[in-house]
């Protein structure tokens, strides 16, 4: 498993019903492209986050395929409409099979 991987998410705690909110996510990850070589000339194997998803109450909000050209610590900012109180689930999929997830509650208020 890649070391030092830590997901971070910023979601407002409350929103009005039907409000469009801005969500920011960041995962610290080295995103090794697989193109680089080490001092001995050996290719450093690719190790990236290859997929990121966000679901709200079981419904998909965003599903992203990440490619090797995406730089270290991928950051996503996107908008979502909040029809009701519930839970956002954020999931990152690592090349090595690791899955990192974070959940955030949002209330209507």
């Amino acid at each position: 498993m890649a070391s030092g991987v830590k997901p971070r998410v910023k979601v407002p705690k409350t929103a009005a019903a039907g409000e469009v909110i801005t969500i920011k996510t960041l995962i610290s990850h080295q995103m090794e492209s697989g193109q680089r070589k080490d001092k001995e000339g050996n290719v450093i194997p690719r190790s990236i986050i290859n997929r990121f998803t966000c679901d709200f109450n079981g419904q998909n909000v965003i599903d992203v395929t990440l490619e090797p050209a995406i730089s270290t610590n991928p950051y996503f900012q996107f908008e979502a409409t909040v029809p009701e109180a519930g839970e956002f689930v954020f999931t990152w999929y690592d090349d090595d099979g690791s899955v990192y997830d974070t959940k955030k509650q949002i209330a209507i208020g």
Binding site: K6, R8, K10, K24, L26, S28, N73
Partner: peptide, 10 residues
Amino acid sequence: FDNPAMIFVD
């Protein structure tokens, strides 16, 4: 959240 230095603080 936008400050990239915070990753290093973590």
